[in-house]
Amino acid sequence: MSALGAILGKDLRVELRTLRSLPAMALFATAIFISFRFALDRTSLEGDLAAGVLVTTILLAALLAVSRLFVSESEEGGFDLIRLAPVDRTALFAAKAAALWIYLAALELVAVPLFALFFLDSGAGLLPLVAVLVLVNVGLAATGALISTIATMSTARDLLAPLIMLPLLIPLVIAASGAVEPLLDAGGPGYHHFGRWLAVLGLYDLVFLAVGYAVFDFLLED
């Protein structure tokens, strides 16, 4: 537990000091919104299109953070440091997933209001959206921490992380879009199958947290 706090604290401190991930994610998300504006030729969005644009943008911005997540550990010896210490190595997985969750939440604090400003006629669906995003972030954090470790140890880090992540995240995209679509309906937020999609998101989160917890030790061995 203390190791988790130490690693998470270290990551957040470095991020606040260097701002390597967060501004890049926010800029990236903004650029994607603008691209969608012209690619779809729409100035306002609702329902399925709105859900698709929002979920896809968050997903792509998350990939930026994922490929950077373990760079300091592999290039500055953090993996060795943690393996030399008497700490449970899954603390590293938990800390990295938590860090990624926080980055995503911070990104969404900027990107979702911007999205609403750009494309939505009303902000009524934004409050229940928080519940969806919390669960989406857990899923992205769990798979991201796992796949980022794998990719970081390979010779093709920047290629592999998105390559494996995207298909792996399709169930998450399906469930998130399914839940968000009625929330952003033109006629005010709806809750068609909302609970069902939240349950799928929760299941996805649980499965990949469990897989990450079970296999992470093997990724740090040598």
Partner: peptide, 12 residues
């Protein structure tokens, strides 16, 4: 353990 690469974070 003192390796040939320092185990120090450059931004701390």
């Amino acid at each position: 353990y003192l390796g040939h690469r320092p185990l120090l974070y450059r931004d701390l």
